[in-house]
Design a protein around this nucleic acid. Structure first.
Length: 227
DNA sequence: GCGACAG
DNA sequence: ATCTTGTCGC
């Protein structure tokens, strides 16, 4: 657990969640994170986005983070570390959480919002890695995935910008987003202090012609090339 | 060629 | 996430 000051002049401090190293502790933390409803965040103008992604390296893991304004990538970093364990569905944070957090810290500049290659609220316990990372770093966050983890919903229309709600247990937790004509929709998952609409808007504002947001593509490429 | 897509 | 071969299309 890393203590984080709530803000200049404030007396109270909030305790940011850390990165548990076993499934039981992580599941308990996910339950607690999902129950919290911190003040929603909305982009003011064109936010400074940090996108993060991880790749499996021979030795362990490599995580990359890039800074971007819309689809324009400004800078990036890469960090390497051992793989804490094998991948398990709904427990991705166990494996990638600490290293992704380190990659964001290594940027040396605090973004306005995080775009994470992982699920957010679209999760069995409503707190996937995208949401968790935002809470841990005290930054608004949204998730982007190829397909839903648990949520279901209709196909969006064929035009870029068309969206359709993705629901889990009656709640809209994500949005299917058509980022370009003729491509399969991506899932924009609500995260820490973001709702599905904000996540979808963020995905669209960082996408330029191809299916995935440019900052995410850049982060993935960096991570892969650093292997 | 680069990106999407099957599996 | 990764591997890998091939087809289609701009």
């Amino acid at each position: 657990m890393v203590p984080v000051l709530a803000g200049a002049g404030s007396v109270a401090a909030v305790t940011a969640p850390g990165w548990p190293d076993d499934a039981v502790a992580l599941e308990a933390l996910q339950d607690r994170l999902a129950a919290q409803r911190p003040p929603p965040w909305r982009p003011a103008g064109e936010p400074l986005v940090a996108a993060v992604a991880a790749a499996d390296g021979g030795a362990g893991l490599v995580a990359a983070a890039v800074l971007a304004r819309g689809p324009r990538v400004l800078a990036g970093t890469t960090v390497t570390g051992p793989a804490p364990g094998p991948y398990a569905p709904s427990l991705l944070a166990l494996r990638e959480g600490p290293l992704l957090a380190a990659a964001v810290a290594a940027l040396g500049r605090r973004p306005d919002v995080l775009l994470v290659a992982a699920a957010g609220r679209d999760h069995p316990r409503r707190a996937g890695l995208a949401l968790h990372l935002g809470a841990a770093l005290d930054l608004p966050s949204a998730g982007v995935t190829d397909r839903p983890l648990v949520a279901v919903g209709p196909e969006p229309g064929p035009a870029r910008g068309d969206t359709a709600p993705l629901l889990a247990v009656g709640e809209e937790v994500a949005r299917a987003v058509r980022t370009a004509p003729g491509v399969r929709p991506v899932v924009a998952s609500a995260g820490w202090r973001t709702d599905p609409a904000t996540a979808a808007a963020l995905v669209l504002s960082t996408t330029a012609g191809v299916r995935l947001p440019e900052p995410l593509r850049a982060a993935r490429r960096r991570a892969r090339e650093a292997r």
